[in-house]
Amino acid sequence: MLHILWFLLLAGGVVYGAVHGRIDEVTQAVFSGAQSGVMICFGLLSVLVFWLGMMRIAQEGGIVRALARVCSPLVCRLFPSVPRGDPAIGYIVTNVCANVLGLGNAATPAGMKAMEELQKRNRSPNEATPAMCTLLAINTASLTLIPTTMIGLRMQAGSQSPTDIIVPTIVATACSLLFALLIDRWAQKSAP
């Protein structure tokens, strides 16, 4: 599925660009796209190095395990394949909390640690497990309470009430999260 989408975007883009006389822009986009990919990763590097360091302290100090123990009853309903008290639960909770609070740069490292923990239980390591798909669904739905970037952008533009997008944002994000979890559960059951 990902391979087909990639093919469609790339090959479709090249063919469409060629037909409509934009082949120079397309060639340029190949390299600017590659460059922005590298820039994004190296932008994330500092954040990953710092937070993975902090999270190692949290793990050795027992915070991750404590979080996992406290939140297991609730979180394990969403991740039935993960045993209670597994460190993955601790990282999942950290990831979700950071997302909710709008701390995107702390959310990604926690999500990655969660994925690593889930990977340890994966019998075919190049294939996603149902628990990984659920965690991904939660992250793509992006549970946000305060859309800080957009409030800032509207404030800069001189909005009368920049915060009036908070309620619609919470409603929309709740809808997409709920739907993501439902369809993820359905896909899990109907997948071979």
Binding site: W6, L9, L10, G12, G13, V14, Y16, G17, H20, R22, E25, V26, Q28, A29, V30, S32, G33, A34, S36, G37, V38, I40, C41
Partner: peptide, 14 residues
């Protein structure tokens, strides 16, 4: 990088 290239091409081509 794979994703970013594909998306950039798709946008730039129109």
């Amino acid at each position: 990088v794979a994703m970013m290239v594909a998306i950039a091409v798709f946008r730039a081509s129109g």
